[in-house]
Simulated assay, not measured.
Amino acid sequence: MHQPIGVFDSGYGGLTVLKEIRQRLPLYDFVYLGDNARAPYGTRSYETVYQYTRQCVRWFFANGCSLVILACNTASAKALRTIQQRELEQEYPGKRVLGVIRPTTEMVGNYSLTRHVGILATPGTVQSGSYPIEISKFFPDVKVFQEACPMWVPLIENNEHNSPGADYFISQCVERLLEKSPLIDTILLACTHYPLLMHKLQKLLPASVTLLPQGSIVAESLCNYLGRHPEIAANCSKNGSVRFYTTDSALTFNQQGSLFYGSEVSSAHVEL
Results as ranks from 00 to 15, higher is better:
31 V>Q: 10
217 I>W: 07
9 D>G: 11
183 L>K: 14
127 Q>I: 04
251 L>D: 13
6 G>H: 05
183 L>I: 04
227 G>I: 00
81 R>C: 03
211 L>I: 06
267 S>D: 04
208 S>W: 03
177 L>W: 09
109 G>V: 03
182 P>E: 09
55 Q>I: 02
184 I>L: 13
266 S>K: 14
239 N>G: 13
151 M>P: 00
196 L>N: 09
130 S>G: 05
51 Q>F: 12
201 L>N: 06
8 F>N: 00
80 L>N: 03
111 Y>I: 02
88 L>R: 01
260 F>M: 11
242 V>R: 09
28 Y>D: 06
144 V>R: 07
129 G>V: 09
116 H>W: 03
30 F>S: 04
226 L>N: 09
73 N>Q: 00
194 Y>T: 05
210 T>Q: 15
20 E>M: 12
217 I>R: 04
207 A>P: 00
266 S>L: 12
177 L>N: 03
227 G>D: 05
241 S>F: 07
161 H>D: 07
123 P>S: 06
106 E>I: 02
131 Y>P: 03
92 Y>M: 08
232 I>V: 15
253 F>M: 15
263 S>C: 10
254 N>S: 07
207 A>W: 04
92 Y>V: 03
120 L>V: 14
243 R>A: 13
255 Q>A: 11
195 P>K: 05
267 S>H: 08
131 Y>C: 08
21 I>A: 06
109 G>H: 06
221 S>Q: 08
240 G>H: 10
176 R>T: 04
172 Q>V: 00
177 L>G: 07
155 L>D: 05
181 S>H: 06
47 E>Q: 14
111 Y>T: 01
52 Y>K: 01
47 E>D: 13
226 L>M: 11
209 V>H: 10
133 I>Q: 14
109 G>E: 01
147 E>Y: 12
75 A>Q: 01
249 S>L: 09
248 D>H: 14
36 N>D: 05
31 V>M: 15
27 L>Q: 12
51 Q>P: 00
111 Y>C: 04
157 E>G: 10
1 M>D: 04
162 N>D: 12
224 N>S: 15
191 C>L: 11
105 T>Q: 06
234 A>G: 02
253 F>Q: 05
130 S>Y: 04
23 Q>R: 15
58 R>S: 11
128 S>R: 00
256 Q>P: 00
94 G>N: 12
79 A>W: 05
134 E>A: 13
164 P>W: 12
37 A>F: 08
101 I>W: 07
26 P>H: 06
212 L>S: 04
170 I>A: 12
11 G>A: 07
175 E>G: 05
29 D>E: 05
72 C>M: 08
141 D>Q: 15
31 V>P: 02
45 S>Q: 01
58 R>D: 07
233 A>G: 02
103 P>G: 08
82 T>I: 06
152 W>K: 01
168 Y>A: 13
219 A>H: 06
246 T>W: 11
110 N>H: 15
234 A>W: 03
115 R>W: 03
2 H>A: 10
24 R>W: 02
234 A>F: 11
150 P>M: 08
232 I>P: 04
255 Q>W: 10
